[in-house]
Structure formats: structure tokens, C-alpha cells
Design a protein around this nucleic acid. Sequence first.
DNA 1: GACATTACGTAATAACATTACGTTCGATTG
DNA 2: CAATCGAACGTAATGTTATTACGTAATGTC
Lengths: 133, 133
Amino acid sequence: MTEATALTRNQSLVHNTLRQADGPLSAYTILDRLRDDGFRAPLQVYRALDKLTSLGLVHRLESLNAFVACAGEHRHGENELIAFAICERCGQVEEFADPVVCERLEAWAGDNAFHADKTTIEIRGKCAVCRAA
Amino acid sequence: MTEATALTRNQSLVHNTLRQADGPLSAYTILDRLRDDGFRAPLQVYRALDKLTSLGLVHRLESLNAFVACAGEHRHGENELIAFAICERCGQVEEFADPVVCERLEAWAGDNAFHADKTTIEIRGKCAVCRAA
DNA sequence: GACATTACGTAATAACATTACGTTCGATTG
DNA sequence: CAATCGAACGTAATGTTATTACGTAATGTC
């Protein structure tokens, strides 16, 4: 159960690029950073990102059109609802899961016969460090 | 306090286009629909959308890169946290506000000294009608 | 080994959004 | 009333993000 699906070369390259980054990266930024590794076209990045997000190793930030490596506090592949707090100044992203929020949104879905596939929660603002600065 | 700021011609045209639509529209779709009214460039749409969103008359759906007219159950201009349930099949969008969710996210922000500017909650899935079909 | 599935490479194009620059309109206010 | 100031506008060019289309290669399965 805990095995990591072996990633392909392209997938590993993209994953490592995101892990080494100190914040979210756009697909095209990833592409640029992987030119020396033979990447030539956006699709190479997007295909790897699709796979990585479906494995839960990477998250897409909708409000940024960018991607981050999963911080890993929560289990991969689970359908857990994760919220992101994104600092507009330094770009750092915090992930957190709130069971109550999750439960309330599920309750709304239940009450309205809505079947949720994917839920996005993103808070844009200013982090503690940047507020102090 | 309750007066509606008079909208300019462009702003009204964009607003009406969104109100008449039966779902979210992209900026470019709006542009196409307003060609006959003299719209020529994306910026005309984006400028109107910026104003309308700042007035709370229109919402941007980040996960769709599209815009909807505010459904109007909640007060305009307020900084209220609104969640959107988006049907992937029929495109309909439901707006709702959940005070508990709001409170929990505010609590997280408080605990983490994070200053939230704007929060996005979007649930992608399938609505009741489409599930039945 | 035949077959299905998944991943890959490349090129072209579509879709979404902004920058830059100059002009017009309306409300002050001196 | 003219000067001025700010918001909105028009247009063109460009930048950024994402997908479609087509063919090839690698991998797993029976």
C-alpha cells in the first residue's frame, strides 16, 4: 500500500523540479528549467503534471495557474480535501486540511444532491513572515 | 448606502451579457457576443470585468477561467465568502455561503497570522439534474 | 509474438490575459 | 469658465497558459 508507483524519467524530472522549488511554478517555468534535460515542448510538462496530480504528488493551484509539490503531511492519492494559503508577496504556499470544512461542504453536496469530483480551496493573502516585514 | 453605482456603457453591456447567459462565460466569449455593440478588443471586456468584480456584481471562477453574474442571494460588495458548485456536465453554477466554513478558514488564518485577501472555494462535479439524467 | 496500454516527441494552434500608449469624458475647483 | 484630475475608453501588440493532432517507442499481458 505504501509503495511509490515508479515514475518515468519525465515525471521524475518534473516532480524533482517542483520539490526543489521554493514555491509554485508554472508549467512553462518548469519547461525552461528542464531544457537541459531534453525538454522541448509544453506537452512534455503537462503530461507529467497530469500524472503527478492524479497520483497526488503535485497540486494545481487554480488561482495561480501553477503547480506545487505536495507538502506530504497528508496521504497521497487520498481524496482528502486540502486548502491552500498562498502568500501574494513571497509566494510561499501552506497546505492544510480542515475536517470541519470538509464535512460542511460534503453536507451541502448531500443536501443538494451534488456529486463533488474535485474541490478547490485557495486563500490568497499575506503570510505571517511578510506581514511582519 | 444602498445606491447602485451607475455603470458605464461597457460595464452594463458586459454585466447584461453575463446575466442573460445560463452559465459562466469566458472573457473571449463575452467579447464575441459584444462585437455588434462595438467591442473590438479583450481589454474592453477585462476592464469591465475588473470593475464589476470589484463591485461584487460578477464573480470569477478560477478553476474555469470564466465569469458569472452574481446570483444575488447575498449582499453585493460585502467581503462574504462564497462557495461555488460547478456542474461539469451542464455548466450550471450554484452559489452558497457557509458561515461555519467561513469561520473555520478565518480561524486557520488567525492561528497562522495569515491575512486573507480573497478566498476561493469551488466544487467541480455533477449537479442533481445531471445525475438523474 | 500479438495485442493493448501507456508514455513519448514534435509542431501547430487555441485560449486566456496584460502591457503600452494615447485619447475622451465628467466632475471638480480655483 | 478654464484648468485640471481621475476614471474610463480605443487600439495594437505581445505575453502566458493549455490543447489538438499525428505518429513513434516502450511496456505489460495473454
